[in-house]
Simulated assay, not measured.
Amino acid sequence: MYLEQLHLTRFRNYFNCSVAFEAQTIILLGNNAQGKSNLLEAVELLATLKSHRTSKDQDLIFQNEAIAQIEAVVKRLYRENTLTLTLRQKGRRTVALDREKLRRKTDFLGALNAVQFSSLDLDLVRGSPDKRRNWLDALLIQIEPIYAYILQEYNRVLRQRNALLKTIRKSLYEVSESNQVDNSTWEQLALWDAQLAANGSRVMRRRARVLERLTPIAQKWHNQISDHTEQLNLIYTANVTWSEDDPQQVQQAILDRIKLRQAAEQNLGTTVVGPHRDEVEFNINETPARSYGSQGQQRTLVLALKLAELELIETVVGEPPLLLLDDVLAELDLQRQNQLLSAIANRFQTIITTTHLNSFDQQWLKSSQVLTVDNGSLS
């Protein structure tokens, strides 16, 4: 997989910028706040239709412009595609493949695969559970694009059920004449329970499966980087228990848990059962890395996870994804830098942002395309 061209129009601080990538390794050199990360964000959006920096399209559009566009030419093993993402201040974003507008965004996902590793990812270990859930979901979308729709459907059901629970809470606990809920409301809640269980089962089972596939790959990299001194384990901790990867069994486990927590849900007015409450645990030598891991251990862990992501995506899609390294080399010591660079070798097309070239080996620089980024322009 090779990114040949990228054209940014009114995106972030790029008013109109085209670049042709001519090497396996591209280094974006420049001071802070010049647009290096913005360029990587554009590639990330083409790969996942998400940005890890914002959830609002308006934030991605140049100043007061109405529309922004990201266009890229991607060379795959057996084909070449032109990808276009159009963002709007008002109205929905649209996607096009080879200039043909797509009705379903899931048909766009998978045209480009990329793994991003930024300094923000070092918070993956110590951060809140939703960071780890989002990381796992982003990986799933890359290898199984239909998962984006599954997750969207689950979140839609969750919003509707939460709205109904708020209504029930108001009827039961706030001052009113009857302090009662009519039968039709309880029947409606039962319907949302069933939908939550069905959609939640799809999310939970896929998360558990992908983590099961990722774990041995991450363990291999972690052993190598830590010089076989530490044992890594990744555990998907769902808030319901099941023994088999069976849709009916997982759905029933969710429904049983809902019944058990119904008083708490009605009191809080929100859903407390489901994959939105699950956790991904990282343990080093059977100790939670979040609580006890040193900074060095945490960096090793995240580096192992990113290398495992690359390898898993390559295995599933049949060709290597892009690697986006956003200001991350400065966060790694020399040993971890060398581990990362040797693992990349010439296997993955890599785009790296940096404020200086001192940390790069001369041989690397000779074979790399170095682009200077200055206030939204490239040279």
Rank of each mutant, 00 (worst) to 15 (best):
Q160I: 04
K166Y: 03
R132M: 07
L172I: 09
I168T: 03
L164P: 01
Q142L: 10
N155L: 15
I146D: 12
R132W: 07
I168V: 11
Q160L: 10
Y149K: 12
Y149H: 12
L139Q: 02
I146V: 14
A148N: 05
N134G: 11
A148K: 04
R156H: 13
R132A: 02
V157N: 03
Q142M: 05
I143R: 02
D137K: 04
W135G: 06
Y173G: 09
N155G: 08
K170D: 13
N162Y: 06
E177D: 13
D130L: 13
D130S: 14
L136T: 12
L136N: 09
T167H: 11
R169V: 03
E177G: 09
S176P: 06
S176V: 10
L172R: 10
N155P: 07
L164H: 04
Y173M: 09
I143Q: 03
N162M: 08
A148F: 10
L164M: 08
L151K: 10
E153P: 04
V175Y: 14
D137L: 04
R156V: 10
K166N: 07
Q160T: 05
Y147Q: 00
R132Y: 08
N155H: 15
K131Q: 15
L136D: 03
Q142H: 08
V157Y: 06
P145C: 03
R133M: 06
W135K: 04
L165P: 00
K166T: 05
Q160E: 10
E174Q: 15
L151V: 06
E177A: 14
V157H: 04
Y149L: 13
Y147L: 00
I150M: 13
T167E: 11
K170S: 14
S178L: 14
N162T: 11
S176W: 10
R169E: 05
D130C: 12
Y154N: 04
I143N: 07
N179H: 13
Y147I: 02
Y154T: 03
I150V: 15
K170P: 05
I146G: 07
N179S: 10
L158R: 04
V157R: 02
Q160K: 10
A148T: 00
L151I: 09
D137R: 03
R132T: 05
N179R: 13
K131S: 14
D137A: 01
L136R: 01
I168F: 02
E177K: 14
L139E: 01
R133N: 06
W135I: 07
R133Q: 05
Q152P: 03
L158W: 05
R156P: 03
L151W: 09
V157D: 05
V157P: 01
A138R: 11
R169M: 01
R159N: 08
L136M: 11
S176L: 09
Y173I: 06
L172N: 08
N162D: 10
E174A: 14
R159K: 13
S178T: 14
K131E: 15
E177Y: 13
K166Q: 11
E177I: 12
I168Y: 01
R156W: 12
K166R: 12
S171L: 15
Y149G: 04
R133Y: 06
E153D: 14
R159M: 09
A163V: 10
N134H: 14
Y149V: 09
N162P: 05
Y147R: 01
V175S: 13
I168R: 04
R132G: 06
N134Y: 12
P145W: 02
R132L: 07
L140I: 06
I143E: 01
L151G: 02
R159Q: 12
K131L: 15
I146P: 03
